[in-house]
Computed example of a mutant assay.
Amino acid sequence: MSNLAASAKLGPGNKRLAPPSPSPSNASNASRTDGTPSKRQKRDGVAAASVRDIRGASPTPTPAAMAAANTSYGNDMLTHLSYAVDFLKSKGAPKTLQEILDHLSLQHTPESQQQQFAALMRKHPRMQFTPAPRPKDGSKDKQQQLSWKLGKYEFRPKIPGVKSKVSLLEHLQAKTDASALAVKDLKDGWPDCDQAIDELEAEHRILVVRTRKENHAKFIWIDDPRLAHRVDPEFKAMWHRVEVPGVDDIVRKLTAVGQKPASEDPRLKKIETAATKQKPKRRGNRGSKPQQNVHMSHLLQDYSGHRKG
């Protein structure tokens, strides 16, 4: 006996009653008779499909992730370049590519990245590359394959080749203009040049402009020791003992003699300007003048008496 027949009951008047409707919980769990999945089945199916897609996805990165990785690698490479410049500047001697990579902890990076880093160092304006000498045995193929690993790199200062008093004087004599040489540019390749500057200044070989507070050398020019003459200390003392009259006395004495001073007393100018500011400018009273439009007199005549009756 089927479930439908067992669930059917006879009511009053021998009428067959309809089977009871399924509960909402049973209806949600059971699948539809027409073959379409329910909402819960759809939700479960979508979740299972998304999990399968995630598990079965390939581990290859997306193009956006690859582009971001390349960008970060480029930024890191620029940072390593600045560190390499500082390393060569501090050492003051030529270094090989392997020594630079070991200092930057880049010896385990891929060979393609090392080759790209070496190409950027050769084009850097603060680095000077010296290629390796050619081999005598004639093995050119091997040298061409490893040419990016050979050679040495050296720091290139703003003023190259100046690291002694002789080279400094030669550089100043070779200048074609009267511009000053900044000491900060000189220290870029010769950090401990202060003592040499002091000695050359004492020998009247260079002219030095110093700061007021620290008395540090700021700018230097070439000088000629033949133009330096020693002045007797007694004469210097006599010179400083001479009293120079004040500005008021100089102006008064020149005016009394009938001469015009080269510069007027600035205090008198201030007094005059203050007096002119205090006096307000008077505006002249403009009288009202009669305005006559002579050229329009024929238009203003009264022609009312010429009307036709």
Rank of each mutant, 00 (worst) to 15 (best):
K140V: 12
E170H: 01
L101A: 09
A274M: 13
I54C: 04
E243N: 09
L168G: 01
K165F: 01
H240A: 06
A48W: 15
P125V: 02
P135F: 06
S297D: 09
F87C: 05
S288G: 06
N293V: 05
R40Y: 07
N70R: 15
A67D: 01
N14H: 12
E243I: 02
R205L: 10
E203K: 05
S90L: 10
P225V: 12
F219L: 09
R226A: 15
T33P: 09
K260F: 02
Q128Y: 09
D185L: 10
H229D: 07
K15N: 13
K95L: 15
P24N: 13
K253C: 05
D223M: 03
K270S: 06
T36P: 02
Q195V: 15
Q292D: 13
E203N: 12
W148R: 05
H240I: 02
R156F: 01
L106F: 13
M238K: 15
F155Y: 14
P19T: 14
H108N: 08
Q144E: 15
M66R: 13
R267G: 11
V257K: 09
H240D: 10
P290K: 12
K136Y: 11
M121T: 01
H229M: 00
H80I: 01
K289L: 11
L200M: 11
K165D: 14
L150A: 11
K42R: 15
A8G: 12
D232L: 11
P94V: 08
M238P: 03
K91Y: 05
D188V: 07
F155E: 04
P59W: 02
P160W: 03
D137E: 14
V46G: 09
Q292C: 13
H204D: 06
R210I: 00
T273P: 03
W190V: 04
Y303R: 13
L17C: 06
P261R: 00
H103I: 14
V51F: 09
S23Y: 07
L227K: 12
E154N: 13
D224A: 02
T33M: 07
K308N: 06
Q115P: 00
V46C: 15
R40P: 00
K89M: 03
K270D: 09
P20T: 05
K158G: 04
A182D: 09
A132I: 06
S112Y: 05
R210K: 11
Q107W: 06
A68M: 08
P110K: 13
A217K: 05
K95F: 08
L120P: 03
K270W: 01
D198Y: 07
S38T: 14
V244L: 07
I222G: 04
K136F: 05
Q113V: 11
D137I: 12
L268T: 02
